[in-house]
């Protein structure tokens, strides 16, 4: 308990530091916000054009699809706010030997490298995503109970951690392959899979996306909860999978560190 408090306190401290830092780059903040917003608008146009051609896609109507889009957006933005920068930086740190000082601190190194930078623009953006979800739910005439909202929150957090685990594992690969900028791009490419209902994919791919590369767990489970398209078993499955992935990151991180070369002096 005491350790947990200490780590929470340190997280707060690092987030504060980033905030102070961010205040120096205000213009950047605004630009980032609008860029991400535009991305959302473009997805919206895309869905609009698709549903201009048909009334339903794999059994989902337009507003259900928009709930999915919003959920996915919230999760992606939260992930980008907390972890994406850190994962990208991690690949550079591994390659350029900048992990040294993180390694000698008397504290969990994975924690330190994973939460050092926070992107505040993305936090703001995630609230836009939330608004989109609420709007679409209104169109569908679906209400959400407090319990449902809390469970949704927990699932979103779980999804963020799954994203984190996948990206972290990819970053840690740098220990083995020497460079992995392309691997970081995988986030954007894997991310595509989570934007749509799982049923559009053929059997094998669908199974894969529910297990090894759990991009459907990430988006379809929380969104499915909101629009009642989900059996309860999947919720439990989602949490279990999240825990499993997180445990794996810890293991592979330790393995990777043994290969750390601390380059450039």
């Amino acid at each position: 308990m005491k350790t947990l408090l200490k780590y929470l306190h340190l997280t707060g401290l690092m987030m504060r530091n980033c905030f102070v830092r961010e205040l120096q780059f205000k213009a950047n903040f605004v630009v980032r916000f609008f860029t991400e917003l535009m991305w959302l608008v473009m997805q919206f146009i895309y869905i609009q054009v698709m549903y201009g051609q048909t009334g339903q896609i794999a059994g989902w109507n337009k507003w259900e699809m928009i709930v999915l889009m919003g959920t996915n957006y919230v999760i992606a933005q939260l992930f980008e706010a907390l972890f994406y920068d850190n994962c990208v930086r991690l690949t550079d740190q591994i390659r350029q030997g900048d992990l040294d000082f993180n390694l000698i601190k008397p504290i969990n190194t994975q924690f330190l490298v994973s939460l050092r930078y926070t992107d505040y623009a993305s936090i703001v953006n995630s609230s836009v995503g939330l608004a989109v979800i609420l709007f679409a739910l209104g169109k569908l005439g679906i209400g959400v109970s407090l319990g449902g909202a809390l469970l949704f929150g927990a699932l979103v957090l779980n999804s963020v951690l799954i994203y984190y685990s996948i990206l972290f594992i990819l970053s840690v690969w740098t220990f083995w392959i020497g460079r992995s900028n392309n691997l970081m791009e995988l986030y954007w490419q894997f991310g595509q899979f989570s934007r749509y209902p799982g049923d559009i994919y053929p059997w094998l791919l669908r199974k894969l996306l529910w297990t090894l590369i759990p991009m459907l767990v990430v988006s379809n489970v929380p969104a499915g909860l909101l629009i009642h398209k989900l059996q309860n078993g999947w919720i439990f499955y989602g949490f279990a999978l999240g825990a499993g992935f997180l445990a794996f990151t810890v293991w592979i991180w330790q393995k990777g560190l043994q290969r750390y070369r601390s380059a450039s002096s």
């Binding site: 530091n17 830092r21 900048d98 040294d100 000698i104």
Partner: peptide, 26 residues
Amino acid sequence: LVMGQKNQLWWDLPAQESLYLNKEIY
């Protein structure tokens, strides 16, 4: 460990912030 060729302080913040973070970490 102090290395003349690498730095551990946060680049975009005053030194005292890094010092304080270190205090909390240790």
